[in-house]
Design a protein around this nucleic acid. Sequence first.
DNA 1: ACAACTGGATAGCTATAGTATCTAACACTG
DNA 2: CAGTGTTAGATACTATAGCTATCCAGTTGT
Lengths: 259, 259
Amino acid sequence: MRISELSRSSGVPVATIKYYLREGLLPKGEATAATQARYDATHLRRLRLIRALVEVGEVPLAAIHRVLKAVDDPDLEPHEMLGVAHYAISGSDPAARERTEPGYAEVRARADALLRDLGWRVEPGAPDRDELAAVLLRLRDLGLPMPPGVLAYLAGVAQDLATHEVRWIDDDAPREILVEQAVARTVLFERALLALNRLALEDASARHFGTARAHGSPRDGTASGSEGGATGNDDGSAAERADGSSGNADGSATGGRRR
Amino acid sequence: MRISELSRSSGVPVATIKYYLREGLLPKGEATAATQARYDATHLRRLRLIRALVEVGEVPLAAIHRVLKAVDDPDLEPHEMLGVAHYAISGSDPAARERTEPGYAEVRARADALLRDLGWRVEPGAPDRDELAAVLLRLRDLGLPMPPGVLAYLAGVAQDLATHEVRWIDDDAPREILVEQAVARTVLFERALLALNRLALEDASARHFGTARAHGSPRDGTASGSEGGATGNDDGSAAERADGSSGNADGSATGGRRR
DNA sequence: ACAACTGGATAGCTATAGTATCTAACACTG
DNA sequence: CAGTGTTAGATACTATAGCTATCCAGTTGT
């Protein structure tokens, strides 16, 4: 496969592919002559991964570079590869400036205490500890401190998600593909979850407020107001309709299900 | 309050504040003379909101601008304000390029079908529909199509989150503050959830693979491998430890809980 | 009255993620 | 084996975002 075909089958401009080659994001093709090289399916796979991370995941190229370097390092065990990949996509420098702000130590301690209480095995230097602390700090600055129950609720959701996600790992896949897939899934599933959450919020907001415009009448008063401190776990379940039928062409859908 | 004090109490450089004023992100202070203006607490609040959104939320200034314009529009109902704010922070242009790619229509239809089946009240033009479709498309391109059960599971989690989030809204707060807070919460909670999820993933990964290094023995074999199509909903619940006690200073904590 | 501070305007800077152009070396066609 | 088109590699250029820095003339506190 020559570069032009790689470009055609990936939809990425030749100039961009050359740029990725320069930056070491894409391994060089096998040189057949001074001005000729051959690319294969692995290049195409890599390219698709890079584009997915950049375009949908909004991962900076520098982070992708670190991830791919870990994936290509033959000395790393899968868990280590995932760890490195993980730290790479988790910023790690955005919170750097805040670590000196007053009150930071406090929220950081709260984050660490949470992880300890949950018994999660997380490296002490994990960048997401800082990320979490930064969020807590900002919320406090804004006068919206996160109640412990809410934090615990989010942690529970996060753990549930992670438990599922790990189960999707294909342990039989070759080492390097395994990690590529895990990274892709981590980043893209995050994106999917955020999109779904915002869509769900639009729905929830429509129900919470009067619902002036859309097609339903303001039945079902969720309007009992904020009753308590978010004790969570009201009906428990998260999944539903796990049957699989994608196209059920008929009008007003299943209707019910509303809590 | 003069600009230098605003700068001191917010930690934002004067030059940056001036920049925000120029860009219309921050309302001008009340002019007391040709080269003098006074700022008050609302400016400080705005500034803190902006910084939280840019630094932690990584929301582009242009999006923040749209959000704040909606917040300051007196003609908008809370739900509409939230809607506009929502669409503003949801990119809406990243997926624009992909909408013509082959296969896009298919995944977009799948996304729409999901929302219809769930009965969510979401505008047909919501940008997150495209975002979701883009994720599905990329996953398919990478050879990792999202099984219907997994998609349903994520949707369930998203709905659970949204239901809680709406409950945290303080309906008694003045209209404009209500939306500011809702926006801040939406963006920052997303960030917290992502950080927690990655931390949980680190833990789950440590347990899933042999756990070469850290402090525990490789008990608890989650290693049953990928058994099926991930129908989700194994134990359902997401929330736990919703008690509220913040500082429970003692060692190994609650310990158990491991599924 | 005089240094320090301000608002407003304009210009410059850094980083990210590409595009574009050029050259000499190939490769396929006829 | 000449002609046409493609390619690797190098270098240069562009666009956008998000600030910084400098000036200037007016204003304030002491």
